[in-house]
Design a protein around this nucleic acid. Structure first.
Length: 310
RNA sequence: GGAGGGGUGCCGGAGUGGUUAAUCGGAGCAGUCUGUAAAAUUGCCGCCCGGAAGGGCUACGUAGGUUCGAAUCCUACCCCCUCCA
């Protein structure tokens, strides 16, 4: 029986460290599930594992595209499943580690992502249309084409509406019929790290201050010098956007830092929407006060590996 | 000591007599989501009861006053800022 260990939870909860520990104990390899660590040259702001950490245990799906390249769910899904297979083939234990819920669940639940690549011209045209004729026009169009899809998308969420229309225009099929999932052929243990909100916010704030000390500003500066300006999607990430604004002279550095902290708090809250404390699939561990989650997690993994072997 | 400006909800900041529990922004809280996801997007956000509709209570520095009615007008006091001495 093949296994996958997923380590999830909000940012700054200590997922990476736990993952490295577990990987060392169980002969594992880490597969990144963080939507921002896939970009090269964005190290400090994304809290990538350091090079020395990456020497301890093999890490996959870090630094896979340049900041100006497109990256998306379908690509992630493909890379992640391939990598999991490869790790299985080696007889190692794959650990899926990261806080990007969409990516994590797509792998765990085996989503069948509609094979309709983005059509940038269409998207731009539809966006213009939405601006000109009002946001409702596109939504109504989707309602007539595929009421089920429309019911699952909020009328205000233009981006999702456009994607659904994009699928319909490309394949001529109802988008909602293409949203399927198929359980993968490995068993999954999902370990979630959590802690009290105020403590988490405190850790986040500390980490942001450390990022600045480690040279986040220089990192952003050099990215901008390479020609990656604020408009490329990867530069819209937390930290990069605000430092970019500071470097452009739009805001003070103290404001930028404060914003980064607040935005990261918001990120953590959104992550809990993907990783619910009430979700029975997740084994939540309290990561407060740096308790010995490692040994608890160790036992969980041990149990998962042996139980499901039988 | 003199002149002027100001004190509004967790914070910033509107509001100059009624439809104001008080525009808006931030923070916070709770959701949505199958090719941008650290994105995009929705709701709540003084307290209490209620699922909601709604009801009750307390609020715009403090204390009085005018008024049918005050965050908004008047008086006194307290505090803050700027300028002049």
């Amino acid at each position: 029986m093949k296994h996958l260990i997923a380590i999830v939870g909000p940012t700054a909860a200590g997922k990476s460290n736990l993952a490295i520990n577990l990987a060392q104990c169980f002969g594992g390899e880490i597969i990144n599930a963080d939507s921002r660590q896939v970009y090269r040259h964005m190290d400090i702001g994304t809290s990538k594992p350091t090079l020395s950490e990456r020497e301890l245990v093999p890490h996959h799906l870090i630094d896979v595209v340049d900041p100006n390249e497109d990256f998306n769910l379908a690509l992630y899904y493909q890379l992640a499943t391939e990598t999991i297979n490869a790790v299985h083939t080696k007889g190692k234990l794959p650990l899926l580690v990261g806080g990007s819920g969409l990516y994590v669940w797509s792998v765990i639940e085996g989503w069948d992502i509609p094979a309709v690549p983005p059509n940038k011209e269409l998207r731009r045209d539809l966006e213009i249309k939405a601006q000109g004729e009002g946001r409702d026009t596109l939504y109504r169009e989707l309602q007539t084409i595929d009421p089920l899809a429309a019911s699952k998308i909020h009328p205000g969420n233009i981006r999702r509406i456009i994607r659904a229309l994009e699928i319909y225009y490309a394949v001529g099929q109802y988008p909602s019929k293409l949203w399927r999932k198929e359980a993968p052929d490995f068993s999954v243990l999902v370990v979630g790290l959590t802690m009290e909100r105020s403590e988490l916010y405190g850790k986040i704030d500390q980490r942001v201050d450390k990022m600045i000390e480690k040279g986040l500003i220089e990192e952003v500066k050099s990215l901008m010098e390479r020609g990656y300006n604020i408009s490329v999607p990867s530069m819209s990430g937390i930290g990069y956007k605000q430092i970019g604004q500071f470097l452009e002279g739009e805001i003070a550095s103290s404001t930028a830092i404060e914003k980064i902290k607040y935005e990261t708090h918001r990120l953590a809250r959104h992550q809990y929407a993907w990783f619910r404390l009430g979700d029975a699939r997740i084994h939540w561990l309290d990561a407060s006060h740096s308790c010995d989650i490692t040994s608890v997690a160790n036992n969980l993994v041990k149990e998962a590996l042996s139980l499901r072997k039988a």
